[in-house]
Design a binder for these strands. Structure first.
Lengths: 362, 362
DNA sequence: ATGAAAGCGCTAACAC
DNA sequence: GTGTTAGCGCTTTCAT
């Protein structure tokens, strides 16, 4: 590739060629104004022709500021995290920071290792979908500025979607459609969001006089949903709320596969509003969280801390959510809620579409 | 956050405490074996109790090896890139490298800027979905090890899916179903993959005696597909091949929205096998590329170059693809290929499912 | 406004 | 095997 170890063009090279001291060159780039306009111009000129690029690592060594931020996700292949990272990226880049990505691949050990490696090179960390315990996170937060995204950790600045409000809106929506009993299909047992959603649903159900059942935990993917659908048949309901969209989509599949019509027989709601939610048939009613905005907000908070702000350790920043109504929810049918005969062909109330309050999902 | 500028625990601190020279400490960590086992043990011990962590930036400054790799993507929110990045991540991490993410946000200027900033901090770069011209890429490849992913650039090591073979398989599949004329819905005009797919389709069509039309270019998203569907109606075909899955899904939507049945009236095929492909109704027949494997392969090649390998500037590495047959393609109906009456309700041949050759898509 | 010199934390020669 | 001594490229006092 490179012929012979091409040494960088250094500040000294520029200094010599411009007939000034190294410190002057340094000032020209980091502290303009503290240097004579004419000199600065000349230096810049020379630097340009010499092809000088300031070396961020050397700068970091001497300033103890790397201008890098780490974002830790549990699975970058998951579009939910992709969106968050995108938000982080844009804010970081704008502020002159570089983003270092650490993917824990859903494993605790990998996560720790990734963190260990990234830590000394960054000025701060965004933890999105961490597997670590609250305590472990607090320990890290003591060493470096940390902002947690998508989960509230006491004593650590956090940014979370308004899950509670989302759950309440879902309950109200379903109640408005005449449903009187809901079933919640829980996600991973350890999930913070799952807990919040369930509890909010519980409160809302009480307020609205709805009966509420819970099933699960399930792995938060389509397969998990299909399995959950089987259980659902044992104790039929007219409305199910799933921990997330993947699970909800699986539930719809499982239900339909067994001859239950959605939404005619059962309404289904998810959380997240992933891209697929509007592509499936029927479109999935879901609670949309501002993923990208969340990443951006977390990063702004992080940068503030990096630049010396106290780090608001009070209540977490709560991001507004939005109920996106699509075809998977409908008026409760007056018919019994028991599964239709399995011989019935899956008739198409398919012609669902666009009543959707939906906006730009991608 | 931190009370008072906590200076790092340095190699000197450890050296003093262990009663050895700094270089010995250094060796203990970077070149074990070159140091007395007993001494090494003691050093490690001391380092541990002191909480010493070697500073990668300082190390980089002195060795000119940062142990960081940059991966440039055009949109990290796009699951296709997410998968690739995941592949990059795992290989890089395994090899002790850290990944620096640069998202060009589909903009040339952002891409250049991101690259400029990342370049001096990394040992090599994976370019996934770059907007830059081949020439520009070659320039960069002269300065730093570069591997291009998903596109072949002459004189620069590249890793690409076997688009040509994919296109041929699609043509054969469709021909096998009795289709005699295909329409290709092109993606972005500037896309390298689009060109390859089109040309391969052209050859295959000739071989198989199929008529082939082309429409587009279209923006490679669902909306673009819906628009393309309108054009399609003007000159009906029984089979359409779209540049990618999003576009294909859009086409299916557009077609169905206008009363054309898929696959009964028209078969539709996409490329990529994104997650949504198996979730839509009917499931989308598509060409699956090993995204993650691609990221991994590119990274392995990059690491080899970083470690001094020549950088195979010959033919690109070609990754095998796989045709995933789902419900969106079917035997050509003997009926005319003209669109069904628009008044016809969208009847459900919906009961598609699982004939699919599909395996693990996520 | 500019220059000189010391040092960030680590590694790489080169002695011993 | 281990210690000594220079730097890597940049910023930062402290002088001037």
């Amino acid at each position: 590739m490179d012929g012979e170890r091409a040494r960088d063009v250094t500040i000294y090279d520029v200094a010599r060629a411009a007939g000034v001291a190294a410190s002057t060159v340094s000032r020209t780039f980091s502290r303009p104004g503290r240097v004579n306009a004419a000199t600065a111009e000349r230096v810049r000129q020379v630097a340009d022709t010499l092809g000088y690029r300031t070396n961020p690592l050397a700068r970091a060594l001497s300033t103890a500021r790397t201008h890098m931020l780490a974002v830790l996700v549990s699975d970058i292949g998951n579009p939910v995290y992709g969106e968050m990272v995108r938000g982080v990226q844009s804010v970081a880049t704008q502020a002159g920071y570089t983003v270092l990505l650490a993917d824990s691949q859903e494993s605790d050990r990998t996560e720790r290792a990734a963190l260990e490696r990234a830590l000394p090179s960054v000025d701060g960390i965004v933890l999105a979908g961490s597997r670590m315990s609250d305590a472990a996170i607090r320990v890290i937060a003591k060493q470096k500025p940390v902002v947690v995204l998508g989960r509230a950790v006491v004593d650590v600045p956090s940014v979370v979607p308004d899950n509670a409000r989302g759950a309440r809106e879902v309950a109200a929506h379903l109640a408005g459609l005449g449903h009187s009993a809901l079933t919640y299909v829980a996600g991973p047992a350890a999930s913070w969001a799952d807990g919040v959603r369930w509890r909010a649903l519980l409160e809302a159900a009480e307020e609205l006089q709805l009966r509420l059942r819970r099933t699960g935990p399930s792995s938060p993917d389509v397969a998990g949903g299909v399995r959950a659908a089987a259980e659902l048949l044992a104790q039929p309901t007219s409305a199910v709320v799933a921990y997330n969209d993947q699970l909800a989509i699986g539930v719809v599949r499982g239900l339909r596969g067994r001859g239950v019509r959605v939404p005619a027989d059962v309404s289904v709601v998810g959380f997240d509003n992933v891209g697929a939610a509007e592509l499936v048939t029927p479109g999935l009613t879901t609670v949309a969280a501002p993923l990208q905005a969340g990443g951006a907000a977390a990063t702004r908070a992080l940068l503030a801390m990096v630049q010396g702000a106290p780090g608001s350790t009070g209540a977490p920043v709560v991001l507004p959510v939005r109920l996106v109504v699509r075809g998977s929810t409908a008026q409760r049918s007056r018919k019994s809620t028991s599964p239709a005969s399995r011989t019935t062909t899956v008739s198409a109330s398919a012609a669902q579409a666009s009543t959707s309050t939906d906006a730009g999902s991608r």
